[in-house]
Design a protein around this nucleic acid. Structure first.
Lengths: 345, 345
DNA sequence: TAGTGGCACTCTCGATGCGAGAGTGCCAAC
DNA sequence: GTTGGCACTCTCGCATCGAGAGTGCCACTA
């Protein structure tokens, strides 16, 4: 592929911007009119023809304007991804909202999903931060009835998991409290991975609990991400490309199914470190249902300690200049919040 | 309004069924052909004309078939609401799914939402059961850093709430544990409402915690319903009435906004006891955005102890014969589960 | 008198055709 | 290299038209 001349490059960016704004194939005449270029339509046509040849643009039909190809969007994104910034006022407004809520992970997630959806006019998704290398802080055993007990497990960082267990035989609350106290002394600060290895031979009940804690932890750790929050699903219904076709249904359905969503989000795990953005354009995501869509993904949190994923889905024609800096900014904000939370321990 | 003759009544039910199946205005000819009635089209026309006069049917335009009015649907529902049953095989299949999951409220909610959406081909919504007159079971205070502590509060029934508190001054974990133990002795089994009244004058820290517990409880109790789970939002996009119009967007948007959803669900609180179904047809719901929709709602749980709400949203043309018994059955199932859970204490 | 067959009438919907508009490619000229 | 001109193409909106489905009414019948 030949390199783009400076003029071709500028032209391509303008064309894509114009298409993103208008949602309609852009032709040489309009382009010159609206963007006061110092060139004649004929020249533009020649360049457009070249860009089409190179695979950045295509024509929906002979003698219609040009529309960006996936390739074109990719070029566009690669050009602006590192320079797009969110206006300072918007940054402040968002920060403000976060610092006004209760310092509670669930609130943060809801707010982040809402902000992303609202700013980008797309569908947003975010997973709660998952603590990697979680450390044990505290366990509580509460007798409910007979052989059933409620186990409340607190990890360093404040993550709480609760589970209803059924023991082999009834145990008194007193006995349970003793066991919990003993376990707490034994396990505090330990990595959750190693807990099952801590054997003390002293007590069958204790041993059982130990095993159950380990099982519970592994069970939740298996799923790549924790709870998934979404917002703004209906936003994408407003896009003209989804006006009548059932393309929209399929894309939204994907977003409703948490299993596929997890798969999608899992893609960021390996490919990008915290701070790096990933933009999946059209077919890149590998999902047939997302052929017409793009997804902007980012990881947030503190690598190696606690991370989560967030993203925005929109039509391939989404406003990348708006979405990308928003995703980046929110990811950074959440990283700071998670960092503060961890540091305070 | 004159009473309906037996024949008119049957005819009306058949017409509505036909319209629900076909999504198209039903005319006299088709009706006779497909439902082998022993009458001529002309007779049917006369009766249809009468039913239209009475307000049960209407014509989209002169010389089109008839379409049910809200009134018509209401009559239809009132006729079948008490007799529609879910096939035993389906009941078994659903029960089976519930008894296979872990006995965990969150799992139940997800499953219920999924089953409702799938069976009814509509959008489902369900709130976690809220414990009314909650009783204190256990509190745990865990020191995190300096003045921040994590409070884990367990209510009778296993509902757990956690909150990060900031104290006036740092307190040792030992001191916290003592306080927690003392509070547990003092409060176990008490109604949450009364907790703040329990005054012991012995200890400033203890008094503080007491107040915070009370505050936390009242804060969560304020919201009419707990977490809201939804599923099958995209199902309604498949309905022909929502093919292109933005009617669908508005209805779905409503479903995305949890605040409005809460309002909607709150309607069942007063009007219907557990076990009773409520069917809101068209404008009945009061929401402009739901003018074209119907909602089937039910409460489940144990009245006075723990109840929640579930419902299904679909087009006014939804399959009531399928949705109503499904909602009723799932509500019953969840009531049993909640009941079992409470009884086991 | 309730039910029926016949008939004229109405309205939608899909297919067809046509003209305006927008855009292209190419070529000759600057 | 850039430009104006020109012939050509394709979509889209609009009007037309006929088929199909349905209705209302009326006269007739059992």
């Amino acid at each position: 592929m030949t390199d783009l001349s400076e003029r071709q490059k500028n032209l391509l960016l303008i064309i894509i911007r114009a298409y993103i704004d208008s949602a309609q194939p852009v032709g040489s005449k309009r382009l010159v009119d609206h963007y006061h270029l110092d060139l004649s339509p004929a020249t533009i046509r020649n360049e457009m023809s070249a860009l089409t040849e190179m695979g950045f643009l295509r024509q929906p039909h002979t003698s219609a304007g040009r529309v960006p190809t996936e390739e074109g969007y990719r070029y566009f994104v690669s050009q602006m991804i590192n320079q797009a910034k969110l206006p300072a006022s918007v940054q402040q407004a968002i920060s403000h909202q976060f610092h006004e809520t209760t310092p509670d992970v669930e609130q943060w997630m809801h707010l982040a999903a809402s902000v992303l959806a609202h700013q980008s006019q797309g569908a947003s998704v975010i997973t709660a931060p998952r603590v990697e290398k979680a450390r044990f802080q505290h366990v509580e055993l509460i007798s409910t009835q007979g052989r059933q007990i409620l186990m409340v497990l607190v990890m360093v960082g404040g993550e709480v998991s609760q589970q209803l267990l059924t023991l082999a035989e009834p145990v008194s609350q007193e006995r349970l409290s003793q066991t919990a106290t003993h376990l707490n002394g034994l396990l505090t600060g330990r990595l959750m991975d190693e807990i099952e290895g801590v054997s003390n031979h002293s007590d069958a009940l204790e041993q059982d609990i130990l095993t159950l804690i380990g099982q519970d932890y592994r069970r939740t750790a298996e799923s790549v991400s924790g709870t998934i929050y979404t917002d703004g699903l209906t936003n994408v219904l407003y896009e003209p490309e989804f006006a009548d076709s059932d393309e929209a249904r399929r894309a939204l359905r994907l977003f409703e199914e948490r299993s596929t969503l997890q798969d999608l989000l899992a893609r960021t795990t390996g490919n990008s470190s915290v701070g790096g953005l990933q933009v999946l354009i059209g077919g890149e995501s590998g999902w047939e249902a997302l052929r017409q869509c793009s997804v902007v993904l980012a990881r947030y949190g503190v690598p190696g300690l606690a991370t989560g994923t967030l993203g925005v889905l929109g039509p391939m024609r989404m406003s990348y200049t708006r979405t990308i800096p928003t995703v980046r900014f929110v990811a950074g904000l959440l990283s700071d919040l998670v960092n503060d939370k961890i540091a305070s321990e």
